[in-house]
Simulated assay, not measured.
Amino acid sequence: MDSAVSYKCPCCGGTLVWNSKKQQMACEYCDNTFTEEQLKEILDLESSETTESEMNWNVTDETAVENQMEHMKVHICQSCGGEIVGDENSVATECVYCGSPSIMTENVSGVNRPNYIIPFKLDKKKAKEALKGFYQGKRLLPNAFSSQNHIEKITGVYVPFWLFDCDAQASVTYDATKVKLWSDSNYDYTRTDYYKAVREGKIGFEKIPVDGSSKMDDNYMDALEPYDYKQMTEFSPNYLAGYFADKYDVDAKESIPRANKRVKNSAEKKFKETVKGYDSVVAKNSRVNVQNGDANYTMFPVWMLNTKYEGKTYTFAMNGQSGKMVGELPTDKGKFWKYLIGISAAVFAVAQIAVFII
């Protein structure tokens, strides 16, 4: 079994967690705060003064061997000694017995260690407020969903991401049109001229995000963008304290197709901005060659919120840095038909008025 790391307050021995408001490690009991540098100095001093005793027991736990679960790992909580069971990708979690946050150091070391991290800026309270704000203005949302339902679970998660840098040599052909309209006393005329526009050039990309977790919905993760990379910092396990995290289970090589798709779409969009003077412009063919490609392993902050309504679970995700919220909402069928009938009636009334004027 592996050991899990839990950060302790040097003053009272309480659990230290990352405080998103103060941007420091904070004690849940005595409210003292510590910068990463201060905590490192204290831990280095303690480790130099403490010698751990060796206590070897020649006992084989046959029951544990027989009950090993494939792809699962057992870790020891440093606060209470309880066993924490997690999958092979678990990085940060909490003890089910004492609730202490724990970090599986073997999953954030060596090749598994992220290059960068964007720390949480918004806390759980902000996530709850953002969800209520997300409900507002949704005309077709059932009244009971927003007034009676309760958040079943809210979890702060560091999601593994790959940030791709590359240069791209692109050649894009666009189909473009110019439309001219005119009339005489007898007819209305439309003339459409068709053109081909070709754009070629080199374009550079930095920090194209692709999530490296198969557990996360790619559409949700894409919709949470953008993140402010100015607040990105070198990775330290301290930031994980008090949150959940998994290491990537989709590696950089497997993520390349998604990165390529984003490069292609972005290149087509950027070159399209130079095709001016037409009424319509559509990318027809494109050829994009990626050069000098590189990827950096990074962790992004995400709040995951779950709520139930009529037996169905609805999942929402919030950018833990900006507060942007995404998710699927239920639709009140009664409100939907009333809304549709109302629109149809309004369109019919306008048509009647137009006929009367004519």
Rank of each mutant, 00 (worst) to 15 (best):
I103D: 13
C98N: 03
I103H: 10
K121C: 11
P142M: 03
I118Q: 00
V108M: 00
P119M: 04
L122E: 04
L122F: 08
A92Y: 12
N115K: 02
P101S: 09
L140M: 05
Y116Q: 13
I118A: 01
P101V: 08
K121E: 15
T105L: 09
G99Y: 05
S102W: 02
A92L: 06
A130S: 14
F134W: 12
K124Q: 07
P142D: 01
V111I: 10
N143Y: 10
I118Y: 08
F120S: 06
K121P: 01
K138N: 15
D123F: 07
V91E: 04
G137E: 08
A130Y: 05
P119R: 06
E106Q: 11
I118P: 05
N115D: 10
P101W: 06
A144G: 15
F120R: 08
N107T: 00
F145D: 11
Q136T: 15
A127T: 08
P114E: 03
M104D: 02
P119K: 06
G133Q: 14
Y116D: 13
L140G: 05
E88Y: 03
E94H: 07
S147W: 03
P101E: 06
R113Y: 06
S146P: 06
G133I: 13
S102D: 11
I117L: 02
Q136H: 13
L140K: 09
L141H: 02
